[in-house]
């Protein structure tokens, strides 16, 4: 984690920090500008009609009956055709700019797997597995390094959307979609699942942490290490390993190797738990273990109904997983 990196709280597509999002913003000004122009023209004509051609009191003669005019029809057909043509060409160019991008040799490859209702994040070339918070390196002049995402789903359709980095791409089961980002600024950028995926669609939040290349390398090194084994929390670890926790969660270096829930090996390196539904603070973590549904109703993790002392022990154990 870099505590210094700013969190961009508003996922605003007009503040892009990455090439695909920047291309979209440029296109927006063209399309938005033309749209506003059309709105003003049509609105102006309508205003003129409403004020100049309204019936005055006592005026009951019928106005001249005009049936149409082919010249006028031609004019207001051809002008929209030309406008549409311009918009189409600009659109087509940007589609190919973004979609036809070929990954350069040193591009970072990441696999994002959508689950009900969290994100599994794998770095196949680096041997790192994490959840809900995607770390990518910033692309710096001279050493451009875009990140290519392969999107997969474990269950239903989700959609990966971090507006400041790129447009969204659906995460479709039995299909591998690709998208790419190339952020040029460090910081944390927010997004969330954008395709309705069931009960907790609303709390399937995403954080993308853009690190400087050096910070990213350090982060990768830290993530590759197995979990810290702290003898002071041996009781909590024993409880964790002897309950159903291990059938869903992995903690590398222990017997816990479940894959149904997020990997907890470096849980404490993340800023949030429950896919962003709560801050990663000890009291929230404890509340989550006691009853996930109080924080995220419908979440697939059951309340484990552990006695208080065991909850405390497990919370203490998890709190050491840096």
């Amino acid at each position: 984690m870099n505590p210094g990196s700013p969190v961009h709280a508003i996922p605003d597509m007009f503040q892009p920090v990455s090439a695909p999002a920047e291309a979209i913003r440029q296109l927006w000004w063209l399309v938005g500008g033309i749209s506003i122009g059309i709105l003003l023209v049509v609105g102006g004509i309508l205003w003129w009609c409403a004020t100049h051609f309204r019936a005055r009191p006592g005026e009951d003669r019928e106005p001249p009956q005009v049936y149409g005019s082919n010249q006028i029809e031609f004019a207001w057909t051809i002008v929209p055709v030309l406008i549409v043509l311009v918009l189409f060409l600009a659109t087509a160019r940007t589609i190919y700019d973004v979609q036809a991008m070929v990954p350069p040799k040193d591009a970072l490859e990441v696999t994002v797997v959508g689950h009900q209702w969290w994100w599994e994040i794998r770095y196949p070339g680096l041997g790192v597995v994490t959840a809900n918070e995607l770390h990518v390196p910033a692309s710096v002049p001279g050493a451009r390094r875009p990140t290519f995402l392969t999107l997969e789903s474990a269950d239903v359709i989700h959609s990966f959307w971090v507006p400041q980095l790129a447009g969204k791409t659906d995460v479709v089961p039995a299909r591998r979609n690709r998208m790419w980002v190339e952020p040029t600024e460090t910081g944390t950028f927010l997004g969330q699942c954008a395709e309705f995926c069931g009960t907790q669609h609303a709390n399937m939040l995403l954080r993308v942490v853009v690190d400087s290349p050096a910070d990213f390398a350090a982060w990768v090194e830290a993530q590759k290490r197995p979990a810290v084994a702290d003898p002071r929390v041996a009781v909590g670890r024993a409880v964790f390993e002897s309950t159903a926790c291990v059938s869903c969660h992995t903690v590398a270096g222990t017997g816990a190797d479940g894959t149904f829930g997020p990997d907890l090996t470096h849980l404490m390196s993340r800023a949030t738990i429950a896919s962003g539904a709560a801050d990663n603070a000890p009291d929230r973590l404890r509340a989550w273990i006691v009853d996930p549904h109080a924080i995220k109703p419908g979440a697939l993790m059951p309340a484990m109904k552990l006695p208080d002392d065991q909850v405390d022990a497990v919370t203490a154990y998890l709190s050491t997983l840096r």
Binding site: I24, L27, I38, L87, I95
Partner: peptide, 29 residues
């Protein structure tokens, strides 16, 4: 009359959404 104005606006946001890359941002929003 109100329809004419509102519908022009609806049509224009429709064209904005037809611009595929912008739709990548705005779809499902």
């Amino acid at each position: 009359t109100a329809f004419l104005l509102e519908f022009v606006l609806a049509g224009l946001t429709g064209v904005i959404l037809a611009t595929v890359p912008i739709d990548w941002q705005l779809s499902d929003s």
